[in-house]
Measured scan of single mutants.
Amino acid sequence: SSQSQGISSSSTSTMPNSSQSSHSSSGTLSSLETVSTQELYSIPEDQEPEDQEPEEPTPAPWARLWALQDGFANLECVNDNYWFGRDKSCEYCFDEPLLKRTDKYRTYSKKHFRIFREVGPKNSYIAYIEDHSGNGTFVNTELVGKGKRRPLNNNSEIALSLSRNKVFVFFDLTVDDQSVYPKALRDEYIMSKTLGSGACGEVKLAFERKTCKKVAIKIISKRKFAIGSAREADPALNVETEIEILKKLNHPCIIKIKNFFDAEDYYIVLELMEGGELFDKVVGNKRLKEATCKLYFYQMLLAVQYLHENGIIHRDLKPENVLLSSQEEDCLIKITDFGHSKILGETSLMRTLCGTPTYLAPEVLVSVGTAGYNRAVDCWSLGVILFICLSGYPPFSEHRTQVSLKDQITSGKYNFIPEVWAEVSEKALDLVKKLLVVDPKARFTTEEALRHPWLQDEDMKRKFQDLLSEENESTALPQVLAQPSTSRKRPREGEAEGAETTKRPAVCAAVL
Rank of each mutant, 00 (worst) to 15 (best):
Q456R: 09
V511L: 08
Y359P: 01
S485C: 03
H251F: 01
C331G: 10
T475R: 08
I243A: 04
G392W: 02
K318E: 02
E329N: 05
T358A: 09
L477A: 11
A509K: 08
E471A: 06
S469A: 14
A476G: 04
L435A: 15
E426L: 10
R351I: 11
A496Q: 11
S348N: 15
H314I: 03
M350C: 05
L360S: 07
E346H: 15
K258L: 08
L295K: 13
Q483T: 05
D330E: 07
L324T: 07
N472C: 12
P478T: 01
C508R: 09
L317Q: 01
V377W: 02
E363P: 03
A263E: 11
A263T: 06
Q305W: 13
A291H: 12
T292K: 14
V322T: 10
T352L: 03
I343F: 04
I254N: 04
T370L: 12
T336W: 04
V432W: 09
F297H: 09
E426F: 12
T347V: 08
Y298L: 06
L349K: 04
E493D: 09
L278S: 01
A376K: 04
D262N: 11
E447V: 10
R315D: 04
I254M: 05
C508N: 09
L349N: 13
G276H: 09
V384G: 02
T486R: 14
I335F: 04
T336I: 03
I343T: 15
K281S: 10
T446Y: 12
L481P: 14
D459V: 09
L288N: 08
E329C: 06
S474D: 07
L344S: 04
R504F: 08
E363K: 02
L382V: 08
A371C: 08
Q408C: 00
P395S: 06
L288P: 07
T410A: 04
D265E: 09
S325E: 07
G498C: 09
K247C: 15
N310L: 08
M273W: 04
G383S: 10
L365R: 01
L382N: 00
S485Y: 11
L382M: 08
E495A: 11
Q402H: 13
S341T: 08
K441N: 12
W421G: 11
C354W: 07
D262E: 09
S367P: 11
T501S: 14
L302E: 01
R504G: 03
L278M: 10
K433D: 01
I335V: 15
A376G: 07
W380R: 01
D407G: 06
C508V: 09
N321K: 02
H452P: 02
A496G: 07
L353V: 10
A482N: 14
D459L: 00
C293L: 08
S326G: 09
S381C: 15
L288G: 12
R315N: 00
V480M: 03
F416C: 10
P484D: 13
L405A: 00
A496C: 10
K342R: 06
A449M: 15
K342T: 04
M350G: 12
P319G: 03
S367T: 13
I335E: 03
P252T: 12
I268E: 15
D265C: 15
Y298N: 03
L390P: 03
N310D: 11
I243C: 15
L382Y: 02
V420F: 03
L301I: 06
G372C: 03
S367Q: 02
S341K: 06
K289T: 13
H399R: 11
Y359N: 03
I312N: 07
T501Q: 10
F297A: 09
R488V: 09
E497A: 14
S485A: 15
T502C: 03
L467K: 07
A476H: 04
L344F: 10
A291F: 07
D459K: 02
D378V: 01
D262R: 10
V322E: 00
D457E: 14
Q299P: 05
K461M: 12
I409W: 04
G369L: 15
N285P: 05
E264P: 08
G311P: 05
V368F: 12
K342S: 00
C293S: 09
L431A: 01
S411G: 12
P440C: 08
T475C: 05
G275F: 15
K256F: 11
F279V: 05
